[in-house]
């Protein structure tokens, strides 16, 4: 049961289309697990639509309908009735990984460039062309303590697979967890199972322990520009 959700700021900016891509991917991944937030986003889109239909209409002097139809007819691939209705998609694909993440990874997480950091962690940066943030997938083996680290920037973690727990509670698949600058993770956190997370990072994490050594290659990798 998902119990950590994006707040009204994330959902509103997402529905309005102003959320930067890295954060938008995190919200979209959460939405595939969470019907409640999906409903909120739909309602927020209703708000936007109601505002749009109340705008003063801007009428174009020359009616462009005929030229638009010409454009459509010269390229329309679908004759009447043949546009298939898209059936309700299962929220999550067969692998259990949200579609949005798999699509951006080029079909499968295996297509990403994984960097192995020690025995229990590997990280794959995701290039989504977002300048303000780093986006990556973390794959962490079960039974390891979560690395203790401190944040210089906001970090969003969406749990895609597995679970972990810390003093604040237990995090499960779908949970959307935000850590703010200056916050320190609970050092007691442990991974209950193998864990795959989508992470969006505002700034490099300042490590306070062995995490730093683990992170160093990632930081280097990031500096080299995420080349694929």
């Amino acid at each position: 049961m998902v119990s950590f959700h994006p707040d009204s700021k994330f959902l509103t900016d997402f529905a309005a289309g102003s959320l930067p891509l890295s954060e938008a991917v995190c919200v979209a991944a959460h939405l595939e697990f969470c019907g409640k937030c999906r409903a909120h986003v739909q309602q927020l889109s209703d708000v936007a639509a109601q505002m749009m239909v109340r705008l003063d209409p801007v009428v174009d002097d020359n009616d462009g309908f005929e030229s638009l139809m010409q454009r459509i007819e010269s390229s329309d691939p679908a004759p009447a009735g043949q546009v298939s209705n898209i059936a309700a998609k299962a929220a999550v694909s067969a692998t259990g990984i949200p579609r949005v993440v798999e699509k951006l990874a080029g079909g499968s997480l295996q297509n990403l460039n994984w960097v192995k950091l020690g025995k229990s962690l590997r990280i794959a940066p995701m290039d989504i062309g977002c300048k303000s943030r780093q986006t990556a997938i973390y794959d962490i083996k079960a039974g390891r303590p979560m690395p203790e680290h401190e944040h210089r920037g906001e970090e969003i973690t969406v749990l895609l697979k597995g679970s972990f727990s810390d003093a604040d509670g237990k995090y499960v698949k779908g949970d959307f967890v935000v850590r703010y600058a200056g916050e320190r993770h609970q050092p007691t956190a442990t991974l209950d199972t193998d864990c795959i997370c989508l992470v969006s990072l505002e700034q490099p994490v300042k490590a306070s322990s062995w995490w730093y050594r683990l992170m160093e290659p990632f930081v280097q990798y990031r500096l080299s520009g995420f080349s694929r």
């Binding site: 289309g17 019907g35 309602q43 699509k103």
Partner: peptide
């Protein structure tokens, strides 16, 4: 942006297979 991304992959129409939820939705509107 040099990375080609289909925006609809992210801002897609979330399907809800639950008619009851759809109805509540329309009422909310």
């Amino acid at each position: 942006n040099n990375r080609e991304i289909d925006i609809e992959d992210i801002w897609h129409d979330a399907e809800s297979p639950e008619p009851l939820v759809d109805m509540q939705q329309r009422r909310a509107e």
